[in-house]
Design a protein around this nucleic acid. Structure first.
Lengths: 204, 204
DNA sequence: GTCTATATTTAGATAGAC
DNA sequence: GTCTATCTAAATATAGAC
């Protein structure tokens, strides 16, 4: 494995474990048993390191957030898969969400990257909701749909952090998917709601 | 106004504006036009400063989270008032929630303070939900009630931060109350849901 | 109580040899 | 590509005069 890749992988692990603000370039070099000078040969500094990790994240979620060509059939199964892949990518880069405000404040490039990402997330989820509503499975007024959309976006961003803060032992992405589907359920028609509940229970 | 109080007030404002990790003791001293030595005369350091601010926060929310003596009648109006006061206190100390993971990681005392606080919040909200269910206004199964409870706790913790990250201009506490009531609405009986919608709209 | 001056520590970053 | 050695800058914290 190339040193550059080892650095990225190790940095990701340390950031996820301790939070980006609490990890120094020296920590990374020590963990890898390379010199700080070597680290700086591969990455100009912490910002370059972060940029590379953020690029990975954006790449891993891009295909999930672009609008699908054909109008979604929006079955619960499709939605489940979308959320599953999304939470997987977020869990892999969870350090990014754990200190999101802080990182966006300190790195302008991250603001410029995450604002559009969030907008794309919101737009994609909105599309899912509309498809569900058009097919008659989602029953709610416009106001409730917007609140649901906000709740879904918020849960996408902060579920892992919430679990961590609440201290519920090990944190897994599956719980986030369950929570998302669970938020949706009270607004679904009876048949779809039951199907949804089956999907939720399938994890346990 | 005593210097000690001026320091606390100024620190709160700077922390809320820029985030605790981005504010140095020198920033605070400069803003107040006092010397760093003077600052350290009043507070041993950043941790002592944080402790005082956290104490204020705990004090301002304590009465909201203890179980009421008499069983709650749990009218939407009572709930509204509870949420309004809660979000007001959180907005005043929003720096605490903006970097919650980070702060809890760096200051063990904060972990020991916030875990019980969160447990109390959850317990109090749970009580509200049970009262609503017992009076027949809340209609949902046990699983949905637990998910709703998590959604409410999460929104309490992260709504302001979510608004900030999403970049929706000015952030206000009222939106958080609306979102909380909005989350509840799909699970309420028709009459209560309408009442709730009236409460939500009353803000606008 | 408040100030000036300074000490300590640590993170981020670079230069130059190998 | 990698290392050693070192520099700079900044933040926390303290000493001692007033």
């Amino acid at each position: 494995m190339k040193t550059r890749d080892r650095i990225l992988l190790c940095t990701l692990e340390l950031y996820n474990a301790d939070g980006e603000p609490n990890v120094t370039t020296l920590d990374i070099a020590n963990e890898l048993e390379i010199s700080p000078g070597n680290l700086y040969y591969h990455f100009k500094g912490k910002e370059a390191l972060l940029e590379a990790l953020v690029d990975d994240f954006l790449l891993s979620t891009h295909s999930l957030l672009v609008s699908p060509e054909e109008p979604d059939d929006a079955s619960p199964d499709d939605l489940w898969l979308l959320l599953h892949l999304l939470f997987e990518a977020i869990a892999t880069h969870r350090f990014l969400f754990q200190d999101l405000s802080n990182l966006m404040g300190r790195y302008p490039f991250l603001r410029h990257a995450m604002r559009p990402w969030l907008a794309a997330l919101r737009s994609r989820l909105n599309q899912v909701l509309r498809a569900l509503r058009n097919s008659g499975h989602l029953i709610c007024d416009e106001d409730a749909e917007q609140r649901l959309l906000d709740a879904l976006c918020q849960t996408t961003l902060f579920w892992l952090d919430y679990q961590r803060v609440a201290g519920d032992g090990e944190v897994d992405a599956a719980g986030g998917v369950q929570q998302m589907l669970g938020l949706l359920r009270p607004c679904l028609d009876e048949e779809t709601a039951e199907w949804m509940q089956l999907l939720i229970n399938r994890y346990n």
